[in-house]
Nucleic acid binder design. Sequence first.
DNA 1: AAGTGGTCTAGACCACATT
DNA 2: ATGTGGTCTAGACCACTTC
Lengths: 233, 233
Amino acid sequence: MVKYLKIYETIKQRILEMEYRLNEKLPDGASLGKEFDCSELTIKKALDILVADGLVVRKRGSGSFVKRPLNTTTSHLHGTKANAIKHGKEVTSNNLKFEIIPADERIAERLNCNRGDLIYHIIRVRIIDSLPTVIEDTYMPVNILNGLTIEHTQDSIYSFITNQLKLKIHSSTMEISIVKANEIESENLNVPLNDKLVAVEQIVYLDNGDIFEYSISKHTTDTYHFSTNFVRL
Amino acid sequence: MVKYLKIYETIKQRILEMEYRLNEKLPDGASLGKEFDCSELTIKKALDILVADGLVVRKRGSGSFVKRPLNTTTSHLHGTKANAIKHGKEVTSNNLKFEIIPADERIAERLNCNRGDLIYHIIRVRIIDSLPTVIEDTYMPVNILNGLTIEHTQDSIYSFITNQLKLKIHSSTMEISIVKANEIESENLNVPLNDKLVAVEQIVYLDNGDIFEYSISKHTTDTYHFSTNFVRL
DNA sequence: AAGTGGTCTAGACCACATT
DNA sequence: ATGTGGTCTAGACCACTTC
């Protein structure tokens, strides 16, 4: 690991373990540079990540201060399964569809590919702690996800992507709105027809700029919970 | 403005105006350094912001490439009014409550202040394009928002904070879930009792680490729409 | 082998806050 | 006046990609 990340981890640890306490002033750049045997700029890079995390505030002329403790945000840069496991829950999947189709106009636009390109189309009901909770409608380019099988979809597609294919997820866009359950959704999620569902539309980017997923998930309202934090750029 | 921000703006402009086109390779660091008469590190800082924006991907060994066009994300680091205006909508407010109260246990924890500290407590119904759309329950420390009047709450509190008090918003945390309308909400939002609403709980931080707002907003499901993008840190 | 980004240094200079 | 962070430079060295 590179130096500034090591320093970042070390200082983060100190904050989380209260070695540096809330509102306490951190040592200045020069002192930290001596401690970690590096230049002040390298210290700055480490502290800048802590600032983005919201754990530190730096004030020109007065110093760097410890701020709020880390809050546990569910990252939507992981899959449904990884998030559930992080919260100690069991996930199974019920595949409604696993097919390869040519991209139509709309899908091609979302996936930034050409019409006719081959696309995995997967519809799954995710069952969390024995409760049908989400129905996920997912589109992924075959040329990126080459080798994806129905077995992977039973488990975690994200783990296939990161562990097997060694691809790295960079970012995602997300839109949340409320929709009414149609017949299929009603049946599979065990809710009344026209009951309200939380619709989440996502486009997920790899760090090379490629899009590997476009999906629409519909969640039951009882179970849906989303939390995040923003930092102004 | 500092150099790297100027360079960032310039290059962003070139991408948005298609001078640098999608998937096109940008000039390398040394060339850009010559063009902008600066060091390569300064170029890197500018390009790094474009990477965070998702507009550029940098690949060690091969170069920097233009990626997807900017998408219009509604920032929740602005107020309800600013967001509505950006979408060309009219906002008015109907104040249900404007009081100053001492912080109880729960509020003190959320606002990271002491029990008994004075807090503005404001409840407003926001009417967007003649439709009652959100009921906002807001708590703000008096010592930070000193001078806030009921007139400001009729308009935009955010504009008071940024324009009058010259405070800068740094970040926010946000939680979304679905709840049932109680009597007050049902009446004011003109929906049936127990109808579902989108509850958004927010804590907003200033760049000095202080919290200036804790709020719970409840939106009608017909109108709620949230979009954002994440970047993995 | 050549091209290109990423990390790191030492030091200069500036902007802002505190005393 | 002093302390502290922010920007910027010039150059070294390394890691990865392409040819």
